[in-house]
Design a protein around this nucleic acid. Structure first.
Lengths: 332, 332
DNA sequence: ATGAAAGCGCTAACAG
DNA sequence: CTGTTAGCGCTTTCAT
């Protein structure tokens, strides 16, 4: 059942059928009715490939993230997918993994699908590296507009939406010091753009409050609760009175450590997580955590993207303020 | 840069270029070399639409799930995506929501994309309903093979892979009764196929152990930790000495309730969750939970699907055994 | 082993 | 307002 069949049955030309399908204003209402009736009756749906061939677009946006099974990314992908669907776009998904090589390959692969835009979820695509490392992104941007969710690079065709991780981390550490905390542990699990921002916020806040930045208090570890706990347990003579982490999983690991060490939370040690995930309300006591506003982030990105695809021009960088959600692991 | 350009530059016909692209055996090795060199040099990649038009396939599988931000589904989608990619297939993702109408619509929409196969994640697609309710699935199966991950319907063209939820729930409840538990709470949040299976396992185990099936002990609630806790708290005179839940979130809610009520876990009440998610190791004490083997489930589905697409015939139904992972919320 | 040419189903420019 | 027609880029007979 193709456009020719419909045209024949409706006794019009294929051009008219095409116009009806695309709801062109220059078809008489009467003809539209007639053609629509036939289409319904025949249960006709246009061939997306043929249409794609002609238009060189299939109304699809590519989404790439390191790993959708991560809670933060899953939430973002879910939100983005919903938004794009509302705008009439489909999503094709690539999970790229965290390695540089596989990220580059994923981006290249997905670009072959003639996507209308590319969205990179998570700050792992605008990482530690220098010019060379983001070459693949600027190349990608030549083929389709690129959106970074929570990442930032300065490059034409690449649009960035980010949460103000530096600021919230700075503010949080300040609050901690004002509450009298002196040895604040910083737990992180990646060198991504956002992790780097958070680290800067932490360090600057310490300095601005006259506290030293102690290397032993910056701990890089795998983001698994049990691993974090064991990791901390294995460190001789480690002592701290507060913890800030770049993700809730890390913070819960620290909480488990505190429980094991019989440290009282929040009296002896304050703990602050990040992302305000379900883990935060699962542990005991419940975790104070930063709401990174991924929904607002994704909404902004999706809306901007659609504006762009509709021909409007948009800002290269937009940022979203984070909120600290206080719960039982802090007493400030 | 299209096939004509390459043909001209390599001084061959487009047919030959096409054959080289598809690695046809009837092109001389010498010609292949020559053409490949030009393709590399020009950085040529075939137009997927044109190819799709001719072959009526774009090597894509459609994945539909109610909500990727759910941990279970996210993990499944991640696994499936990886598998299909390895087999050279791309994934297009639709999040259908939980409502019947939107599920039907999602399936219909994604089928228009001429996907090579359709995978439905989560048992919500083969729910409570009767014949009529799954009509959309049998119709879908006429257009592309359909795979149900953890759902089961008897229908040509629909292939099912499921975990043995009935059995593990039956076994678990038996173990609980053998440990002397008499009033076992059943917490669930959906009427999906797998929830129904779990409920049957629970009821049968009670009966087979001479215990009554008490309606008040079967509690249907939203799957949010705080909600579950409040829900239980609001019930006057509720008493139980064990809990089995269809998901970890529910179980943690019960745990929060027990903590609040000063009930000792596991001495006064045993708690068993489902899906062995990160929540299970986040709470205190850690949660005994059923490993539903979603990785094995997805592997089986992905492999079978690929077999089918390669023309082999496969089984309509395959099932995977679950495992109980014991942690601190049980003492049997 | 290679080439010429006929589609695949649709869109859009052009003509009326 | 409607029809005719030329592509879009690739695959695939059918010749050679």
């Amino acid at each position: 059942m193709n456009i020719y069949d419909i045209a024949r049955l409706a006794d019009v030309s294929i051009a008219t059928v095409s116009r009806v399908v695309n709801d062109s204003p220059k078809v008489s209402e009467k003809t539209k009715q007639k053609v629509r009736a036939v289409m319904e009756e025949q249960n006709y749906t246009p061939n997306v490939f043929a249409r794609g061939l002609g238009l060189n677009s299939m109304k699809t946006v590519g989404i790439v993230c390191p790993d959708v099974s991560d809670a933060y990314m899953a939430e973002a992908v879910a939100y983005l997918e919903k938004s794009f669907r509302n705008y009439g776009y489909d999503c094709i998904l690539y999970c790229s993994g965290y390695e540089y090589e596989s990220k580059v390959k994923s981006v290249q692969m997905i670009l072959r699908k003639k996507i209308d835009a590319l969205v990179l979820v998570g700050s792992h695509y605008a990482g530690d590296g220098g010019e060379e490392d983001i070459r693949y992104l600027s190349e990608a941007a030549e083929k389709a507009p690129v959106f970074l969710i929570n990442g930032y690079i300065r490059c034409p065709g690449v649009y960035c939406v980010l949460s103000e991780n530096y600021q919230i981390m700075y503010d949080t550490v300040c609050a901690l010091t004002e509450a009298g905390r002196q040895r604040i542990l910083f737990l992180y699990d990646s060198h991504s753009y956002s992790a780097t921002q958070k680290l800067s916020g932490y360090e600057d806040a310490l300095r601005d409050n006259g506290l030293p930045v102690v290397e032993e208090l910056k701990i890089f570890t795998e983001n698994k609760i049990a691993t974090v706990r064991e990791n901390l347990l294995s460190k001789e003579g480690l002592s701290f009175d507060a913890v800030v982490a770049t993700d809730d999983g890390l913070a819960v690991g620290a909480l488990k450590y505190a429980n094991k060490k019989q440290l009282r939370v929040p009296e002896d040690v304050n703990i602050v997580g990040f992302n305000n995930s379900e883990l935060a309300v699962c542990c005991e006591p419940e975790l104070t955590s930063v709401d990174s506003r991924s929904d607002a982030l994704c909404k902004t990105a999706a809306d901007s993207l659609m504006q762009l695809l509709e021909g409007k021009s948009i800002r290269h960088k937009r940022s979203i303020r984070c909120h600290l959600i206080k719960r039982g692991t802090t007493n400030f």
